[in-house]
Nucleic acid binder design. Structure first.
Length: 484
DNA sequence: AAACCGTGGCA
DNA sequence: TTGCCAAGGTT
């Protein structure tokens, strides 16, 4: 502990600490909000709420919490549910590993503790997705055990109250503040105290404009008395997310798949694990590295005559991209996307035209998405069954065959099993025929609007897809409007 | 320690 | 409009 933390700990155990605890308890019990997870102290309900509230605002959580408890009213319901249903229930809430960990934790409780959350800090802390804060919150709120629950609110409140200048962004600082918080807990009132100090941070001792004049502990707040409440807490700024330019394909089906579009499921781990999305590829050079695939752009030939009516629509989404960047980039990127999807998924499509841009910001990455409408071509046999025809397949820029693009239709794909080599023109379109299969690549499927009710999508794709269905239904898609 | 993991509200 | 940040955990 730092010297200041040490001094604060001594105060917390003495007069100022007693003052803080008593004033806070009185205040909390008189003003506490009526929240759905405060109906009772059922450990399962407390647990679910604490997981949902991680890095997430109360107002955002409330509807999710109600839906979740409605669908999974007991630990056993959650433990036995299909994982997709849990994920779908979490759709839009973010940090989706929380959902998987919560269900794994529920299964742990069923198998190890007969379905009841144990009144034991070590056991609770060992549950998946339960860290120091959440363990303390569950133990204090559900079981009234005198454990600290130190989150961002508590660190802010105590930094100000004791005028601590430690950088709360450092993991080591939280440990010191935990000791102080533990010393402040009034006898027999751990649950209300911990909820009260968080409530104070959320309603009064807010980050930007704290309401010191109505704060129940203002009289003894060292930060306020020093006039430094706005400088505290000290917290180093997070690194800005790195930009990534991503090219997404909105592939419209034909033939038996007319009216459907192509989506794929993400891998089991990592970013947005197991969620569904539009197929997309990372543009080389990332989002800030200037011209993307300049060589391809040069080879792309003249742009088509059809242009958007508003210049702003073509504004570069990627940071650092020259503002004067011409619309030819769209053509180059369509070609790039077509080739990359062929390489990565052996999925052959014909990108038709730019539809719209979208942005999706994660904590550490910013996706600048360019979405292109595309027709389905066909699916190449995988490398194994294609028997080595792959090698030359994607280097066919100087193709010897005449262009014979196979128009996208379900029948084409289902004709299947043609044993011919494939090559591609400079726009990324397949030339001649290829070795075909009649099934989609692993993880891909055609969906209609109705299918989305059972599939979890990240918000950015949810918005894109909903807008797409809506626009198509009302005949407002660009191509349809201009095709007349 | 530092990077990885979402999303929305607000000034 | 952009930046900040919220009831954090895991690796």
């Amino acid at each position: 502990m730092t010297n200041k933390q040490q001094a604060a700990l001594e105060q917390a155990s003495a007069g100022p600490g007693l003052f803080f605890g008593m004033e806070l308890l009185g205040w909390y019990r008189s003003v506490k909000r009526d929240l759905p997870w405060r109906e009772n102290r059922d450990p399962y309900r407390v647990w679910v709420s604490e997981i949902m509230l991680q890095q997430t605002r109360v107002d955002t959580v409330i509807p999710y919490y109600k839906r979740f408890m409605d669908k999974f009213p007991t630990i056993r319901h959650l433990a036995e549910a299909p994982e997709e249903e849990v994920l779908k229930c979490w759709e839009g809430l973010g940090y989706y590993s929380r959902a998987r960990n919560l269900q794994a934790g529920a299964q742990q409780v069923v198998s190890e503790y007969g379905g009841s959350v144990p009144d034991d800090k070590t056991a609770v802390a060992a549950l998946k997705g339960v860290g120091p804060y959440t363990a303390g919150a569950i133990m204090s709120i559900a079981f009234n055990r005198p454990e600290p629950a130190v989150d961002g609110n508590v660190m802010r409140v105590l930094s100000r109250y004791f005028c601590l200048e430690d950088d709360i962004a450092k993991p080591s600082v939280r440990t010191g503040i935990e000791r102080i918080a533990a010393a402040l807990i009034p006898e027999g009132a751990a649950g209300d105290f911990n909820q009260g100090i968080m409530e104070l941070g959320a309603l009064i001792c807010t980050p930007k404009s704290p309401g010191c004049l109505i704060c129940p502990v203002m009289a003894e707040c060292a930060g306020r008395l020093a006039g430094r409440e706005l400088e505290l807490p000290v917290k180093t700024k997070a690194k800005p997310p790195r930009p990534e330019l991503r090219l997404a394909a909105l592939v419209e089906g034909a033939g038996p798949h007319a009216g459907a579009i192509l989506v794929r499921q993400r891998p089991e781990s990592g970013l947005l694990a197991r969620m569904w999305e539009l197929p997309h590829v990372l543009a080389p050079g990332g989002g800030s590295a200037g011209p993307v695939a300049a060589g391809s752009a040069a080879a792309a030939g003249p742009v088509r005559g059809r242009r958007r009516s508003t210049a702003a629509l073509d504004a570069p989404a990627a940071a650092g991209e020259a503002a004067a960047s011409p619309g030819a980039n769209r053509e180059a990127r369509m070609a790039l996307m077509g080739r990359a999807l062929a390489e990565e998924a052996r999925l052959l499509i014909r990108p038709r035209r730019w539809w719209r841009d979208a942005e999706h910001v994660f904590s550490h990455i910013r996706w600048d998405l360019q979405v292109y409408l595309a027709d389905f071509g066909f699916v190449l046999k995988d490398a194994a069954s294609a028997g080595g025809t792959q090698a030359g397949a994607y280097t066919g820029l100087a193709a010897e065959q005449p262009a014979a693009y196979m128009a996208g239709s379900g029948e084409t794909a289902e004709a299947a099993q043609r044993e011919t080599a494939a090559s591609y023109d400079h726009a990324g379109l397949p030339l001649a025929s290829a070795a075909l299969v009649d099934r989609l690549p692993e993880g891909y499927r055609w969906i209609r609007q109705d299918d989305m009710k059972e599939m979890a999508f990240p918000n950015v794709f949810l918005r894109l897809l909903n807008d797409y269905w809506e626009q198509r239904e009302s005949g407002c898609l660009p191509d349809e409007a201009e095709a007349e």
